[in-house]
Each structure stands twice: as structure tokens, then as C-alpha cells.
Design a protein around this nucleic acid. Structure first.
Lengths: 153, 153
DNA sequence: TCCATTTCTTGATCTAGATCAATGCCCGGC
DNA sequence: GCCGGGCATTGATCTAGATCAAGAAATGGA
């Protein structure tokens, strides 16, 4: 299935949400808080999947849209559960564990440096606004962090 | 296996770490940052498991210790992967998804209220210092949040 | 190509929560 | 039962990052 940049695949509140597999392109999942601010939960590029892992009977909390023109597959959650490798899922938990610890203990600078190291291929494909949102800081704060980094060569 | 309150089951940096199943009692996992501050990643009471889900060949990043005298089982990670129900693991991801979103968008008050609602049985069994650490705020900040809450009846 | 929109940057100010410090309290070990 | 160390509370101060604002630089659509 082909989707265009900007196309929304899932909105918060929807039921019976799916798992999206990315063949080419880039998707993201995010929430919008009560003040209207977006918080990016995840990026997914080639070879990755993205979903809101709520129960299929519950309204989801994440939006999912395309950051680039993409080719995707739509998979039913129950179907996916049958196929998925346990190691993949466990690794997903480990990545989230790292993320939680980051958010609890690391400064804006440390988070950005970790992001650069961990997702070098994503960095060039998304705006700083998106990176800031993923890191849990404002674009202004990220801009200043980058300025500091460039000053220090 | 019986462990006493305060006993450390795993230290950051150890290899070939295990999964701990709690039969009775209460365990926690946490990191210690470069300033020496503890950040609690998880609590596990009766019926739950707790672990650092890093690769068995990698040094782990979490400490695990007992907050109460407990009875536990020690399970090998590979063994556990064979037995574990995929729904359990997927739900774990969903809980972490909520936690990440919380940490990115919610105030200390909102986090505390969510914790009260989600883990009412843990609340009475741990100190406020522990709860504060889990929420990613200082004990002082949590104390003030609670004061506000009690004022509002 | 031009215009409009969005992004990035920079500056000024504000604020939630951190840090530091002092006190009283509880609780567990001896 | 007493003593000492961690815990909770409160107050004063500090600070990383948010917010607000305004200009410059990309970006994209017609």
C-alpha cells in the first residue's frame, strides 16, 4: 500500500487499530496533549513496524502518519502476534527501558547525543522540530543544545 | 528462594542476568546516575516478573533489590522466552508506551495521580521517596504535590 | 519565479521543579 | 526504652528548559 507524506493512518481514539509495517519510507506515532502539543513516541523506517499496542477493543492513544511517501503493509494485531519473533518484542522492551531511563535522568544535551548515536539514519530525514518532540524538549531548547555542540567543535 | 528486604539481586554491569519472578513480596529495578541519584524503573509484586532485558552477553544497566522480604524464582532469559505468553509481553510494551508519554507530557501532579490510580496496591507498600523516584521527580516535589492534593480535599 | 508557510535561530522573560538546608518524626536495632 | 539514621515536610534559592516574540532562512506549491 502506498501512502503520501502527511497522510494520517490512525487517529487517537480509534478502535481495532492495526500494525503498520514499513517497506520504504518513514512513519511516526505521536500523541497530542491537552495543550495541543505533539509528542512523538516513535519513528519507523524501512524494515520496522509501528503501532499503538493497546487492546484492539480499546480506543488507541496514538496518531500515526507518514513523514515521507511510503510503502507499507497493514497487519492485524492478532495475526502479527502469531508471527512475531519473541526476541524482536523483548528487544523493543529493552529500547523502551532505555528511553524511560533517559527521560528520567538525562539532560537535553545527553538525550540529543544519544539520539544522534542511536538513530543516525533518522537524523537526516526529519526536522529538528520532530527530533525535539521525540526527545521531550522544545525546538528552541534543541536549537540551543546544537549551538553549544557546534561551538565545542 | 527467599530474600530479605534490602538484599541486592543484581547490580548494573553484571553479565548473564536473569528474570526474577515474585511469588510473595516486592522487588524493584533502578539505575544510579553519574550524580549518584537512583531512578526506579519498575516495581514487581506478587505474580509479576522483573528483569533487565538487555542481551545476556551485554552488561546490564539496572540494579534489582528487595523492598520487602520476598519469595522469588530465578529464571533463565532464554528459558523464559520459550514459556512467556506473547500477550503479556505486548502488554508490557503498552505500559511502557504510556510511561514514556507521561514522562514527556505530564506534570508531577498528573504523574502522581496516574500512579495512584494504576498502582493502588503498590502505593501503601513503598515510601514516598520511592514513588518520587519512579515518577521522575524529587521527594520534595512529591511532598508539595501531595500537600496541594490534600488542600483540595 | 514568487509568495506563503513552516522551520530554525536568537533574545528576553518566566516557571516547574531541583537543590540546599533545617526541623521534627518515625521506626528499627541494640 | 533509647538512640541514630533515614524519611517527610517546609522554606529559600537556583536553574534548565519552557514560553513568548520576532527575524532570517529554508521549503514547497502554483
Amino acid at each position: 500500500m502506498r501512502v503520501m507524506k502527511g497522510q494520517v493512518l490512525q487517529r487517537a481514539g480509534e478502535l481495532n487499530t492495526k500494525v503498520f509495517g514499513v517497506e520504504t519510507g518513514l512513519l511516526r506515532s505521536y500523541t497530542i496533549d491537552e495543550k495541543g502539543k505533539e509528542h512523538i513516541f516513535a519513528f519507523a523506517n524501512e524494515g520496522w513496524t509501528i503501532a499503538d499496542l493497546c487492546e484492539v477493543t480499546d480506543p488507541c492513544e496514538l496518531f500515526i502518519d507518514a513523514l515521507e511517501d511510503s510503502t507499507i503493509t497493514v497487519i492485524d494485531k492478532e495475526e502479527r502476534k502469531k508471527q512475531v519473533d519473541i526476541n524482536t518484542v523483548v528487544n523493543r522492551i529493552f529500547v523502551l527501558q532505555k528511553r524511560v531511563i533517559m527521560l528520567m535522568s538525562a539532560s537535553a544535551l545527553e538525550r540529543y547525543q544519544h539520539f544522534l548515536k542511536t538513530y543516525p539514519n533518522i537524523v537526516q530525514r526529519v526536522s529538528q522540530k520532530m527530533i525535539a518532540s521525540y526527545l521531550g524538549v522544545t525546538p528552541e531548547a534543541l536549537s540551543r543544545v546544537r549551538k553549544e555542540l557546534s561551538k565545542a567543535e
